[in-house]
Amino acid sequence: MTNSLTRQDSKPSKSKEIKDNVVEGVLQNYLDQLLVTATQPQRVEKAIHIPDIDEQKAVDTGAIETSKSIAEKTLTENALETVSKPKVEIEQVEAEQVKVELIRTETAAVPKVESAPKVEHIAKTLVETVPALDTVIDVSDINNTVSSDIESAIKQSISTLTDQESWSSQGVECLLFSVSGLKLAVPLLLLGGVHEVISDDVKPLIGQPKWYLGLIHREDQNLQVIDTATFIMPERAESLAEQGYKYLIQLEKSPWAIACQSIDDTVRLEASEIKWRGDRGKRVWLAGTVIEKMCALIDVSGLLQRVESSCKPV
């Protein structure tokens, strides 16, 4: 009797499971279709209003300031401040560890920094490797190592920001921008900067592929500009070189920047809002899609890897 009841109970449970799987499959297809639809020019023209550059100026200024300040503050200042003086006592090394803890706390407030334990471990290891606790030692070399290790650890942790697990429950501020009718989002923490393009600032180089728009000099460095439309949506045969572009979004602190036509807004995206893309084999630049905002979230590290994989040093 009990067994029959159990069987009876298990039947609806199984059918529910199957139903859930079907729903999930349908949802998955729907989301994939959504991205495909969003990348089709005809539909996009009807569905999405591409704001004029003039309309966006007020919004853009705010977005640029916010992105710059947050990205630069978090990425560079905190990481590089950590070590600077040539000679310190061992207590100072401990102080560095406290600073590292602070960095971890600050970065954890927005995204979850996975490599924070690694940073702590680096500091611990250094404390352990100091020969004598009372001795004042020249730690300039160690400082350099700590600096570079912390920098790389933080960089690595931030690079994984587009992984689902790295997103905190509070969400992450993202910058929304438009490229040939497609709305894209990039986490502010992964922005190296947003640059406005004035007239023919971007200098094309001979013999480069279509997705390479050229070079531009900004803030004492040459940025290499990617035609975002051509690079991420080659099947659409859209080209920003023909359509024009107004802004460049620098990816992290790399020398690469993606071109876009307008900067729309900054929004806080939560992990639950994002339909994460598990298999990124097809579109390595895509971290996921956000239905509510009708946008695609860029996987910055994936995009950079793809760009750099197609580059050979001269």
Partner: peptide
Amino acid sequence: IETTPNVGNEESAKFIQGVCHKNDELLI
């Protein structure tokens, strides 16, 4: 003089030895 990554497969991409920003102008 900065080297540029050779992203192009075309022959003409090989001519570029480097780039330099001088007097607000990019020199190839």
